[in-house]
Nucleic acid binder design. Sequence first.
DNA 1: CCAATAGTGTCTGTGAGACAGTATGAG
DNA 2: CTCATACTGTCTCACAGACACTATTGG
Lengths: 228, 228
Amino acid sequence: MSYKNPLFTVDSVLFTVQDNTLKVLLVKRAKAPFLGQWALPGGFIDIEQDANTDETAHRKLRDKTGFTPQYLEQLQVISGAERDPRGYSVTLAYYALVAHAPVKARIDSVKIAQWIDVKDLSLHPLAFDHAQIIALAQARLQQKTLYSMIPAFCLPERFTIAQLQQVIETIIEKPIQRKSLMRRIEASEMFTALDEKTSSGGRLAQLYSIKAGADLVNFERNLMAKDE
Amino acid sequence: MSYKNPLFTVDSVLFTVQDNTLKVLLVKRAKAPFLGQWALPGGFIDIEQDANTDETAHRKLRDKTGFTPQYLEQLQVISGAERDPRGYSVTLAYYALVAHAPVKARIDSVKIAQWIDVKDLSLHPLAFDHAQIIALAQARLQQKTLYSMIPAFCLPERFTIAQLQQVIETIIEKPIQRKSLMRRIEASEMFTALDEKTSSGGRLAQLYSIKAGADLVNFERNLMAKDE
DNA sequence: CCAATAGTGTCTGTGAGACAGTATGAG
DNA sequence: CTCATACTGTCTCACAGACACTATTGG
């Protein structure tokens, strides 16, 4: 038996937080369909280069945007006949996090890459069903933020608790208690307090960094931030 | 640009609980490679029949084993050059739950399907990397059991709290408090108490069923069963 | 009656929420 | 000194764990 093999692609939703805003990295499509529209960075697996799909996601992010995420995880496979005008398609979507940095040059086939505020996505027509995929990724990121330190991967090498709190609050769109956050930083054992402090207008703030090779810890309770 | 499209398959890890044992449904392969060995039921997507990969998983389970799961969810994509001797392959693994029932007759290409105790898997040589996929699925099922009522989908239409407790304890391999379970049954609002009780050697037990169209609720805390 | 299983009452423990209070920097 | 931000102490609350207690069946 031999079936028609559908198109298989890998797309990534790369998030960062800048200025208390959750942003997603989009690229302008250089080819039809959806030529010139914003889309998730992604493409076809290259079985010569990619040992697995994680490497495909990394490679496409690197080549199309210049970023290498600090965190990358499978989100979901989306499939169907209607989502790509070229025909039945299967897409493996990843979501990823990186510390904010401006988009550098642009590469080969892609005209331009840009950080776009997730709140402004409705202003931009997105290619394929990429708007839905971003919504899925955002929901997953929000959920995971309630029981893990995943937002730490949106921060630079050295950061303060206040910065981490800001990032968390931006992601879940609710305030949290600094005290709860400190308890979790302690309990997770993911972080090292550096011998360094940073100035921020008042008392100097302790700098932290993620321990090398530290695993993401899952807490047994969610944060339960109140609505506004 | 045109890359070689890798083989894309969909495989399912269908679990059930019987006699306080977690079992997984395996089929004997009817073709090379791994002819005659146990494997997960799965196969290629059929873009004529399957609106998406969920339907592929359902169709393959139905055709190869006769079962229609009460719960089905994507697990993970596994990919690489080494996992299938025929070449680079990409597999979307699902995990699924169903109330126990004996395996019925058998269909077309597949010789036989059978419920196999997950503890006995080491006795059987499994095709491909299916042993690892089952281990992944089991870990996910255990984790999800801590914060949801997902084990209810291993039960028949009508069931008692004691049965649900048994299934949970079998999955997580730890005892839980009946009281905690009752609190969650209440809070989840997923279940209806039927006007019916069943005999089980002592006081009659209340029968419950899953409300039609009830969504799986995620609790904000995990169960925290002690080791043994 | 007793044995067995179903179900409740209620106390403790844990970690999040709330928020007042203290500490330490700059000017 | 004051102001701003960092950090701590400690109370409350919600819900899981523990386990003794009552309830209801069959024999």
